[in-house]
Design a protein around this nucleic acid. Sequence first.
DNA 1: GATGAATGAGGTTTCATTCAT
DNA 2: TATGAATGAAACCTCATTCAT
Lengths: 222, 222, 222, 222
Amino acid sequence: MSDDIEIPVESGPSQELAAELDERAADGRMPGRRGLATRQRLLDATAEQLETVGYRDLKVIDIARAAGTSPATFYQYFPDAEAAVLVLAAALTEAWHEELEALVAGRDWSGDPAGAAHEVVEGFLTFWTDHRAILKVLDLASMEGDFRFRDLRTWLLNGATEALRDLAATHDSGYDPKATAGIVVAMLAHVANHRPGLERWGVDHDALVAAMAGMLRHAVAG
Amino acid sequence: MSDDIEIPVESGPSQELAAELDERAADGRMPGRRGLATRQRLLDATAEQLETVGYRDLKVIDIARAAGTSPATFYQYFPDAEAAVLVLAAALTEAWHEELEALVAGRDWSGDPAGAAHEVVEGFLTFWTDHRAILKVLDLASMEGDFRFRDLRTWLLNGATEALRDLAATHDSGYDPKATAGIVVAMLAHVANHRPGLERWGVDHDALVAAMAGMLRHAVAG
Amino acid sequence: MSDDIEIPVESGPSQELAAELDERAADGRMPGRRGLATRQRLLDATAEQLETVGYRDLKVIDIARAAGTSPATFYQYFPDAEAAVLVLAAALTEAWHEELEALVAGRDWSGDPAGAAHEVVEGFLTFWTDHRAILKVLDLASMEGDFRFRDLRTWLLNGATEALRDLAATHDSGYDPKATAGIVVAMLAHVANHRPGLERWGVDHDALVAAMAGMLRHAVAG
Amino acid sequence: MSDDIEIPVESGPSQELAAELDERAADGRMPGRRGLATRQRLLDATAEQLETVGYRDLKVIDIARAAGTSPATFYQYFPDAEAAVLVLAAALTEAWHEELEALVAGRDWSGDPAGAAHEVVEGFLTFWTDHRAILKVLDLASMEGDFRFRDLRTWLLNGATEALRDLAATHDSGYDPKATAGIVVAMLAHVANHRPGLERWGVDHDALVAAMAGMLRHAVAG
DNA sequence: GATGAATGAGGTTTCATTCAT
DNA sequence: TATGAATGAAACCTCATTCAT
């Protein structure tokens, strides 16, 4: 283990992000009620575009159209399309960081480990599916080394991962609990991303969940 | 289980791809030695761009420049940038399909299951790291539902996945062997993609490999 | 000489300008105390922008921000950015027309022509340097044929030029006194504009002033 | 005098300019015959625009239209409109640097100083009028501190200015010959720029030339 | 009086793509 | 075979300007 090089994500995403996430308009002023509503419509439209056309083809002009405004208005609230995505990702992180932690930590692992594992897997897959558009961006941008997105991703998953690590640490498997936790989350994330492919290949949902729950339980609960 | 809707990937990538992959030039003729060399330079340049700028920013103009030619020449050999990527992906699939199968199947699972699992994990991570640029595209495009890339990805991993499934089937874990195999591959792939992130988070390579090997062994060899 | 086509600038800038210079707000009403203060802040901000970014990049949005207001407020007082510049230029003209005349006329040319010439040159350079931002606009717009700015420029310099002409007329140099006066002012203006360049080229301030004073004295005082 | 801080313009415009002036296209390659012709058409169109609409309103789209091409083509040859202007200015400098020097140095100053002065003034005014559009940019940009343009301007006028300095140095006026030369050139330049204004004010061409020639002669030839 | 908010309009810039050589 | 050259098309982005509050 090398805890010493661990980055401090316990306190939330980095300070640098703050500047990119604040709600001020292009002229530096804080928008009023109406402005914030427009901003929100633009964010909704961005999410919508992300689901329909993907990150690669995200265009300011399309977001604006979908929001019922003009590109000029978009630029009042965000410097570019990526900034809006970043806000969405931050909002997702904010909203789900603790929920995901609770998804793992709030289970009866000692009384019903199989049930706990099952619930975690189902909960995780549901979460991932519900938000796959943004999570895809988070994944992709992280892979490409974008610090802002990677920090958000780390923070989003951090609570759950640490809860899994703590669980894994309670029994001696002979493996690094941290590594185990990381791997489990990776497994869940990747399966969630590629579920359609797996199903097409002939693996149905229940079998998938059962097998993952089994692996999860074995890994963290012995 | 629904083996009945399983798509026939055993025989290699779909026929539709063939048209996109052939080596004929824009005028329908088969290029000669010199033409093929140019085509290859363009492919190499495409791979290079994929590594440096990523899929999202892949541009014909940059590929051509990197290959020391002009865009016009590029269009002699490929209809667009994606087509070149497709060729690269197909070549990777072609070259590694059996290697990956052998990576799994060619191990002494009964004699030294721990060693076998370890070798599979290491081999897989190495493979993925060496080709991460193209594999990233394969992943991304698969996630976005592109059939051509998804078929290639399936075919690339098919040998290994089936070998894992067969292994898993030899002992009764109570779980669907196919699901198990799919999950194991997913785990390997995702960890490979996010290795830098995991290491930054404080998990070093050896611990990661050990934990994955443990999970792999438990999943497919009991 | 063609005094007959001479335009009558003796009485101040043209009537046409009046409309552009009045202090009424966009709605035609005369602003009150608070409104005039805002207007003045906008003028100050315009001058500030002129000094920092120049005429070419003057933008209503920047003026408003620098004044601590919004563009909408700017349009309450001026139809566009140029109008504010015009007001600044007119104010400069108003304030300096007589001062510049006195700078020339109020000297002891018969008793101490060398001293008088020296004082005129120094005074002129100082004036020009202090107001170079607006004078640059006056120059540029005049060169581009804008009547409003050219009339202001003419009126600004008129008193001084005529005083020089009168001086030149008192002795017979054989040259047109008016031409002489115009040339002298041109020399002063251009040197003032390009002082940094001349100094970089290796001519220091004192040498410059001395030489100009010499030429000025010879031209107008024989 | 402070020759020690004199910048070395004897060898032509700075090296940095070279990069901005070379004829390579946007892709870094050297255009062929046809490409260079197009480039030249764009330069001509730029000069034309400069004369009709001025520097402040120079637009790539207008240049392209005037050249009978599209903006995209413009960007093949220049990074922006200013770059084209810079090329024009450099070409003017290149073409006239020696001519202007000869205009001063190639006169019979000892035999017919009045005639020499007259010819210099007339030649200078003609030159300036013929190229006023670009010279205006050179002046303006120099005043705004743009090194590239200022270096070009210095180099353009350098030959003539030094010739004037040498002349001034041959008789003891008591003034710095360099300052005198700089002032004379300033006078010529400014009068040339504002000739229409002076004529409107009632000074006709001949009187202007005569008076300037007189001043010039007195300043440099005693 | 002041200004939040919205946007039409228009120039900038980049690229994929074509075609004649 | 290769490519110089040109450009349509489309997105980006910025501002001047307006209007309702």
